[in-house]
Each structure stands twice: as C-alpha cells, then as structure tokens.
Write a protein that binds this DNA or RNA. Structure first.
Lengths: 344, 344
DNA sequence: TTGTAGGCGTTATCAG
DNA sequence: CTGATAACGCCTACAA
C-alpha cells in the first residue's frame, strides 16, 4: 500500500543506497536530488519507521512519566518538553501514573518494552527502583523536579533550587518584619516539599529567628488542600500575619478561602506564593510570587536527554541542571507588625 | 544486546515458529510453554516492536490530538483514553496543538509518519482537512467532543448531546421563573459553543419565551474569560437573575468574580454550570451543574477506535456515539422573581 | 504441534 | 558519488 524506497528506486532508476543516503542528509548529485524529491512527493512517501527502527534500534520516541496530568505544573512541563522534542523529530508517549508507585513502575516497563529512546520522569517513587528496567537496558533517563539520591550518577536531572527559592521568599517576609508566618507545604516525603520546608527554616536560622511552629501546615499540593489548609490557618487561635503557599494549585485554593472570609491582601494578611495559576496574571496581578521557569525546565530536560542520545558510544556524562527561580514582585506583601521603620 | 527470539530458540532448542506462536497466544505443549517462559525470564526478553511492526504494519500506538493540554476537560479525556488504551497494550502519543489549526495539521502528519494505528482528535479546525493525510492512508479516526460535518461517514465520533444538556439546564432556570438569564458561552464557531447556545434558545422557544439578548456573552472557555464575562454581566445596567456558565474553566473564573463582588448564590443570583472544576466538590458542593461523563467519553472513544482496529479487512462501520449528560442537583438555583407559586 | 525458510523496508558495508 | 547486498528480528505460510 504505502510507497517504499524500492518504489522510488524503480521510478528514478537509482539504487536504494543512494536514496537512503539522501533521505538521511547525505550528499547526492543535484540531478538525483531533484529526481528523488519528485518521486517522494509523487508517491507520498515517508520512511517506514519500523524498518528504520529495526536497523537502527532507535524509535525516535521518548517516554514521559509524571504523577498527575491534571496538575498545572506537570502539564506545563509536558507541554514544553513535547514541543522541544517534536521539533527534533521525536514523539512523546505520555504516562500519568496517578501518583501510584506501582503504576509508575509498570509504566516504565511498558515504555521500555515500547523501545523508547529515553525517559523523562517526574518521579513519584522516592527510591527510584521503578527505573531499574530502563537502567538495565541502557535507556537514558532525565529526572525532572525531584531528585532521587540513590540514582546519582546514573541519571541526569533538572531541578530548581527549591531551598533557595523558599529561602528568598521567606526572607522577604521576615525582613518585612513578619514573624508569625504560615506556610502551606506539599506532602511530607515529597522532594520539593522537603526542600521548600528546609529553605523556610534556613531563612529563619540565618537571622537567628525561630520558626513559628503553629504556622506549618502540611497539605497535598491540590486546590482542595490549599483551601482547607488556609481555612485551618485562619481559624486558629493565633492568626498569621503572612502566609507562604508553596505551589500553584494550593495558591488558588488558599486564595478562594481568603476571599470567602473576606480577608484583604495585603491589608489583613500578606500573601506570597511559589508559582501561581495563570489565571492570576489577570485576576490578581499584584500577588508576589517565586516563579519557576517552566519553559526552561522543560526545554533543558529535553535537551539534556537529546544530548545523551547524541553521545553515540561515548560514556554518557550525567549531570544535574539546577535552574534558579525569580521573585516576581507584587504588592501582596507589606511590612509586618514587627518591622522597624527604615530610614529613607 | 537485547535478547531475541533466536536466543530463546538456542536455549530451549525449539524452533522460532513455536516460540513466536506461543508468544502471540498460540497453543504449545505445556513442557515447551514452561521452557519458553523460563528462557524469557532469564534473558529478560521482550518482543522487538520494530521487527513486529515491520511484519504486521501495526505500531500498537495511538495518536491523540487536542487543542490544549491545560484544559481540565481535555486533560481528563486524555487520561481516561490513555488508561483504556494502555490496558490493551496501546501506547499514546499526545499532541497539544495550542488551538492552532496549522499546528494541528502538522501534528496529524507527524503522527501518520510515526505509523500510529489510529487517531483520536478533539478537533481545532472546523472543516477537518487536517485529517486528510490520515484518511488517505486509511488510519482510523475517532473525533471527540466536536463533530465535523464534512467528515460524516469517514470517521467515528463521541459527543455528548450538548444542545439537550443546555436545554435541560436552561429549562431548570426558566421553569424556576427566571427570565433575565445570563449565559457565558465558548467562542463563536466552536462546535460545543454553538450547540450549547442552540439548546439555550430552544428551551426558550419551547416555552414561547424570548431570549434576553443582553445576557448572552461570548467568551473563550478560559478562567480569565469566565471572570471577565461574569464581571461584564454584573456591571451592566440590568442585572441577570441567573447565570449559566458553559464550561468548567469559565465557571471557576466566574465564581471568583462573584465572590469578589460578594454576591451570594443563590440569594442574590442563581448559578448553574456546564461541568465544574473538581475543586468545587469540596469548595462549593451546592452548585447545580450539568455533568458530562468524562470517563465514559474517554472510554467510549478508545473502544470505538479499538473496534475499528479489530475489524481486520472488513469495511469499517463508522458511528457516532452520543452520550447523555446528567443534571447534578444542587441548591445554587432558586426560584426567580417571575416564578409562579406551585401548588404542593 | 513443531520446524524451515522467505520476506517485511531500511541501513550500512564495501566495491566500483 | 553510486549501487549491489547482507543483515536487523519477527511473523507466517508451508511442510513435516
């Protein structure tokens, strides 16, 4: 049915090798070049990926495994990754493992069986044994967003400096005079949550201040979680003067709780977020936030993987790219009650 | 490097055909069965998908093309589709075309070149010419959510009865006595928006009522759009007594506008939505809404496609599955000013 | 039930 | 620069 290189050979009178070489970027006489181009167009020919794969053992397909497809950050990363890869001719198999370690492991196996050339993974499992089948077969891996210590040296990675970001954010509040700071965190045990928590403590420590323990709320990175967590903070005997919410979903939930309780920002409460929903650019542009470079994360991860695929037979150099975050200034943070007045 | 069936043949002393047959579900002597199983495990063997594909012309891969990955409804569909297909051994190539018709066309071509066995598409382009390359090559297609008239008979589809859903929703408001009903619609020209608009008018027509034209707001199915549209409705000289928001994103945006303006539902305004954000189950459980069966849509689409793939050489029977929606009762709609008191 | 052999469409080697 | 030719690993008649 579909045209093959044999058909082109027949029409043009050229040999298979010549055609193959040209189709793969090789040099050919201008006359033959035109001949082949015409035939390709006429026959509506495209290379048979099966045959090519059989010969080259490369599928030009990348597997992406993420915890949840309906989390803004993850989706965003998938989008940028896919874009970058598609421009280089790579297709992307997307697997949402529903934050289920067993499913995650299954999916990695599935992808390996499908002969993907590489795997991008925002890991759910903290130990990384789900990636063993890929490692065994020499499938290059790039971790995104969350590192896995036991895998150091065996995989590459792209992360942001979560601790630093959190430190910067917290510093903003502390230096503004806030002391009773609420922080709404992701689940205990999740890499990013731990790091952001650490940064929060460090910022205090560096200033010789102690953390207001009542303000620490572990949540689950969901909108609902953020909503509930903020409600909890607002209904405690002692109110925070500022709240730092550590991801986009929870920020949305938390801000709804605020608006329900008719709490004004920053008059009644200072508010700071780690990432924020797109919606907020229109809706609440004054929100101060620490932004992760989604685009750069996705692109870097894709490029890191592509480089690993290039490195033909040479031993792959694994590396972890640490991207920095940026404080997007707004007006949702105002000096806290204990701030010293500055001389101007 | 990787083990092949030849290795298994060598180890077990069996012939290739026997092994191949067994691996594909054929019958083999129990003794040989065990022999092969052992060898497979020992060698960590999996079928080479390239070689298999070359023989069978099937990739066991499905392409999915959607307008936006970061729209809750689309993402949800992708999730269910992927789940269903993976359970049947199919991998899914996800393509987000950014609501760009040119990109959409490009992606269909990309997928065809990748030899996908079938395509699932929530179309951006209203005319369907982007699917021509797939049709030319006999790649089965299932449209989701939006139909394309010119393609009738050439593709299958899964939709919900949008007009009916919208009619039911509007009826609820009209029969509750509302007359000044605001409706926030998707973009003109988009299939679902047109259908939902039609249902809105029909409900009026069936009751001999005229539509309150000032209440009709075309928006863009985004949160921002919903927010802006609701603000617009609320700042007009004449206020609606009820508002019907026609997708999930806009519902979120609209409800934020409500809460900002401190408008109470349903005391000040009745509120009804088409789909709603997950968040609302916790946050605003009383919202009355028309729900689409996301899960069923995804599963049906996947199964329709799988059936088309089964139908080996027989002429494919194209069909359009029309799923029905369900009104999820809440308390966000109360009798309008012009309601007649009912006898109990 | 089992084994043998040919071919699917490319790529890569090696002469010419 | 070009062209025969031999794999790549699996499936599938066909024969035993």
């Amino acid at each position: 049915m579909a045209a093959t290189m044999n058909d082109i050979a027949r029409i043009t009178g050229l040999g298979l090798a010549t055609i193959s070489k040209y189709l793969n970027g090789g040099n050919v006489l201008p006359r033959n070049k035109a001949l082949i181009d015409d035939a390709v167009k006429e026959l509506n020919f495209t290379v048979n990926t099966f045959a090519r794969g059989l010969k080259t053992s490369r599928s030009h397909t990348i597997g992406v495994v993420i915890p949840e497809l309906n989390f803004a950050f993850f989706t965003s990363i998938v989008t940028y990754v896919t874009d970058t890869l598609r421009k280089r001719g790579y297709a992307v198999l997307v697997c949402d493992c529903r934050t289920d370690e067993k499913l995650e492991k299954e999916m990695v196996g599935f992808l390996v069986d499908k002969r993907v050339d590489g795997i991008l993974n925002i890991p759910t499992s903290p130990n990384g044994e789900h990636l063993q089948p890929a490692l065994d077969r020499g499938v290059p891996i790039v971790l995104i967003d969350r590192m896995i210590q036991p895998l150091a040296g065996q995989v590459s990675g792209v992360i942001v400096d979560n601790a630093d970001a959190s430190r910067k954010a917290t510093a903003l509040l502390l230096d503004g005079g806030h002391r009773d700071i609420g922080i709404i965190l992701g689940p205990k045990g999740v890499y990013t949550a731990e790091q952001r928590y650490a940064g929060f403590r460090e910022a205090h420590g560096q200033r010789g201040l102690t953390v207001w323990e009542e303000g620490i709320v572990y949540s689950d990175y969901t909108m609902e979680g953020g909503y509930v967590a903020m409600k909890k903070l607002l209904s405690a005997p002692q109110l925070p003067t500022a709240v730092f919410v550590t991801n986009s979903e929870m920020t949305l939930g938390a801000s709804i709780a605020l608006s329900e309780k008719q709490i004004r920002v920053p008059e009644d409460l200072s508010f700071l977020s780690f990432d924020k929903p797109d919606l907020f650019n229109a809706l609440f542009p004054t929100l101060t936030s620490v932004q992760q470079p989604h685009n750069a994360i996705g692109e870097t991860a894709a490029n890191l993987l592509l480089n690993m695929l290039q490195a033909d037979k040479e031993p792959i150099q694994h590396q972890v790219a640490m991207l920095s975050t940026q404080v997007l200034p707004g007006t949702s943070v105002r000096p806290g009650p204990r701030s010293k007045r500055m001389t101007i």
